[in-house]
C-alpha cells in the first residue's frame, strides 16, 4: 500500500487566500481614495471661500492617507494568513511568492484607481473647484506616467515593508517588529550621519529616478527579509 503525493499549493492559491474576502483588499482602499478626494476638495472650497489660495499644489494627501493602511495590508497579508496557509499545505517559499503577487496586484489596483481619478479630475477641472488631489505635485503634477510610477512603486514598497514587519512578528512575536524597526531606524541614522557633509551636493545632483532605485531596494530587501524570517518561523 502506498500513498501518493498531491499537487503542491501554489502562490496563486495564496493570492486567492488574500483576496477571499475582498472588502479589506478592494473596497476599503478604494473608499479611502474616494474619501481623500472628497475631503481635499472640501478643504479647497473652504480655502477659496476664505479668500486663501485654493490650489494645494503639493499637499500629498493621497500618499499620507493611504500609506498607513497600505503598510497594514502588508502586515496582515503575512501575520493573519500565514498560519492558515501553512495549515492548508503551503510552503514558506510559495507563501512569500503569493504575498509578492498580492502586493503587485494591490499596487496595480491602487494605481489603476488613481489613474482613473486623475482622468476624472482633469475632465471636471479639478472636481469643479480647481482642486488638485491626484494631480498633486508629489504624484507627478498631473503627468499620468509619473503618477503610475509613483503610486505603483510607493504602494509596492509599503505593502512589502509591512509584510516584512508581519514576518518579524510571526517569527519573533512582539519583539520582532520592534527590533526590526529599531534596526532600520539605526541604519537610517548612520546613513544620514555619513551623508550629512554631502547633503548639498546630493541635493543638487538629485534625480527623480533615484526614488525608483530606492523603491526597488526596499522591494527586494523586504521580499528577501520576509522569506528569510518566515523560513525559520514555526507555527505552534
Amino acid at each position: 500500500m502506498s500513498t501518493t503525493v498531491a499537487r503542491p499549493a501554489s502562490p496563486v492559491a495564496v493570492l486567492a487566500l488574500q483576496y477571499a474576502n475582498p472588502s479589506r483588499m478592494v473596497s476599503i482602499p478604494l473608499m479611502i481614495l474616494g474619501a481623500v478626494v472628497v475631503v481635499t476638495t472640501g478643504i479647497v472650497v473652504v480655502l477659496a471661500r476664505s479668500g486663501a489660495d485654493g490650489e494645494l499644489q503639493s499637499n500629498g494627501a493621497i500618499i499620507w492617507s493611504l500609506v498607513g493602511f497600505i503598510v497594514a495590508i502588508g502586515v496582515q497579508a503575512v501575520a493573519v494568513t500565514f498560519p492558515l496557509a501553512l495549515a492548508l499545505g503551503t510552503t514558506r517559499r510559495a507563501f512569500t511568492a503569493g504575498v509578492l503577487l498580492t502586493a503587485v496586484l494591490e499596487s496595480a489596483l491602487l494605481t489603476g484607481s488613481a489613474l482613473v481619478l486623475l482622468g476624472l479630475e482633469a475632465l471636471t477641472g479639478g472636481w469643479f473647484v480647481g482642486a488638485r488631489v491626484l494631480g498633486d505635485a508629489t504624484l507627478g503634477g498631473g503627468d499620468a506616467r509619473a503618477l503610475v510610477a509613483v503610486m505603483f512603486l510607493a504602494s509596492l514598497s509599503a505593502i512589502l515593508a509591512g509584510a516584512a514587519f508581519g514576518a518579524a512578528w510571526v517569527r519573533f512575536g512582539a519583539r520582532g517588529p520592534m527590533v526590526l524597526g529599531l534596526a532600520i531606524a539605526a541604519g537610517a541614522v548612520i546613513a544620514l550621519l555619513a551623508l550629512a557633509p554631502a547633503f548639498g551636493a546630493v541635493g543638487e545632483a538629485f534625480e527623480p529616478w533615484w526614488l525608483a532605485v530606492a523603491a526597488a531596494v526596499v522591494i527586494a530587501a523586504s521580499t528577501a527579509g520576509t522569506y528569510l524570517l518566515l523560513r525559520r518561523a514555526a507555527v505552534r
Binding site: 500513498t3 503525493v5 498531491a6 503542491p8 499549493a9 495549515a87 492548508l88 503551503t90 510552503t91 517559499r93
Partner: peptide, 11 residues
C-alpha cells in the same frame, strides 16, 4: 519546505 509533501498534508 518540500512542496509536494506539504501540499499533501492538511493539519
Amino acid at each position: 519546505e518540500h512542496a509536494d509533501v506539504m501540499g499533501s498534508i492538511s493539519l
